[in-house]
Structure formats: structure tokens, C-alpha cells
Design a protein around this nucleic acid. Structure first.
Lengths: 138, 138
DNA sequence: GTTCTTGCAAAACTTTTGCAGCAGT
DNA sequence: ACTGCTGCAAAAGTTTTGCAAGAAC
């Protein structure tokens, strides 16, 4: 894992497996779900290790943290610019790719907004709320 | 408070004060900050009452809950369509009004997105991330 | 060999719940 | 009077922290 090396993080078993797991899913899992996923894969990790590593990966800029609507944090190793749809019933998060033209217009608008002149902006996120296919069917 | 009556909620002292407090601020406070604010105003309320009332007001559609980036929920009694800027350092939330044209384009794009065909969409929220004026100055 | 990491258990925090007494209708 | 609300204390749930043993460099 050259990615880890380049950020000054040691390539320990738990950390490599965690990052690999996150890179291989689009499910935006919570810390609990990640722990369960690793254990299913035969990797025994303590919760503390998962939380500590998630914080380190977020600090290193390799993983993005999202504040789930249910209080739990959710994590995404896809650092490319993209947006999310959030299910208001089960909390599931799906990726959304807006047309580039719409995104450009949005970035232009926020960059020029008079209320935000005094802010130092880093990124604009679009969050679509609704019911996912599963929850929609009750 | 006709607002409360119309939703079948009793106009108790704690509830009226809480809603009045939220209607009078643009600070998007957390439950803890609301409790502190009410006590500063001389209203002695228990935390349980604050949480219970926030949940009721959210259920009644009078208040919107936001999942703050620090894990705490934040609350907003401004139910008009508007967006938010979130400070990544202190968690402060400010209101943002996008140009109507940009918002329309965005709503059109999400409504027509092929990834979201199977979803039942309720609303689209734009979240601008960055550093607020205070935190920007370290 | 030194420094970082792991993982357990305990602590810290936010939020929810049970329940007896009280207030609104 | 009836029903809903308050508020304390206890419980539940997520995340953090202290620390001794172990792994990476």
C-alpha cells in the first residue's frame, strides 16, 4: 500500500485491510459495519482499532467522513468529486453523478455568493434526500 | 402559538419558549446550545424535555434536523428552501441562498438522474464546506 | 531498539426512555 | 377529569482514551 506510505502511515494488517475494504465498496459503511465486514473476511480487529484508523485515514485525506442522518458516521474511500443520495428511512447512501454542467454552475454560484465572501471554501456537496428503492416498497 | 395548536401540540411553557428561541436565531444550535440559551433567558428546562420537544417539532414539520459534522444534531426553524455552509473547524452553520436559476437547474438534474430513477426524492440540499471567518483567522 | 499500532476495558458524550408528579385543555 | 408534558435518573448507543503487549520500521 504505497498510498499509506506516502502519507507517513505504517502498513499494518488492520489498516491495509480496512482501506482495501473501503476501496472495494460503494456502500458508505459505518464503523460498526466496517468492523463486521472485516470480521466476515476473517480479519479480527477491535473496534478501537477501527475507529483510530478511520480517524487517521480521514486526517491523511484518504477517506471522507460523512455525518449520517442517524448519528453514526459513514465513510467513503472514493475521494473523487461526486455527490450522494441519502435514504431518510434506512440511512443508506448511494453515489450520484450530476451532469458536469450543473456542477460547474453550482460551483460558480457558491464561489460568487455574497454571503460566503468571508468564508474560505473547500468544496460543495449536494445531498439528495428521499426513499431508496427498498424502503419505498415498505 | 397557533403554529403548535395547528399540529395538535399543547402550548406548554417549555415548548413555546423553545420554538420562539429557534425562530429567533439563525445559529442552527445543537440541543445543548438550545438548553443553555433557554436557561440564559431564565427558562429552567431539563435536557429530556428539550430532546423530546425537538423530536416532536421535527415530527410535526415545524423544525428541521441537521446532522452536524461533529456528531451532534443541529436544529433550524426556518423551513423555507435554503442551503447551508458548514465550517469544518468549529461546526458553525450559516444560511446560503443560491440564485434561483442555479437551484432550478440542480432540481431538474437530480429529478432526471438515471441513478435516482428508482428513488422517491423529497428534496435536494446543497452543503458548502469550508472555514468560517472566525476559524479562517486561526 | 525505537516508535507506532493494537485491543481490551473504562470513560466520555449525546440521545432515549421509565416513571411519578404536574400542567394544559 | 383526562391526557399530555416535564424532569430526574438510569439506560442505550457511538466514539474516545489509557495503557500494556506486540508489530513495523
Amino acid at each position: 500500500m504505497a498510498l499509506l506510505h506516502s502519507r507517513g502511515l505504517r502498513t499494518t494488517k488492520a489498516r491495509v485491510q480496512l482501506l482495501t475494504h473501503l476501496l472495494g465498496t460503494t456502500a458508505h459503511p459505518s464503523a460498526e459495519q466496517i468492523t463486521a465486514g472485516l470480521r466476515e473476511a476473517g480479519v479480527e480487529v477491535g473496534v478501537a482499532t477501527v475507529y483510530q484508523n478511520l480517524n487517521r485515514l480521514v486526517d491523511a485525506g484518504l477517506v471522507r467522513r460523512m455525518s449520517g442522518s442517524d448519528g453514526r458516521s459513514r465513510f467513503d474511500a472514493d475521494m473523487s468529486p461526486h455527490d450522494h443520495a441519502v435514504c431518510e428511512s434506512c440511512g443508506r447512501i448511494a453515489d450520484v453523478d450530476l451532469e458536469p454542467g450543473v456542477r460547474r454552475a453550482l460551483d460558480r454560484a457558491t464561489a460568487g455568493d455574497r454571503h460566503l465572501e468571508t468564508w474560505l471554501l473547500t468544496r460543495t456537496a449536494v445531498e439528495v434526500h428521499g426513499l431508496c428503492p427498498e424502503c419505498r416498497a415498505h
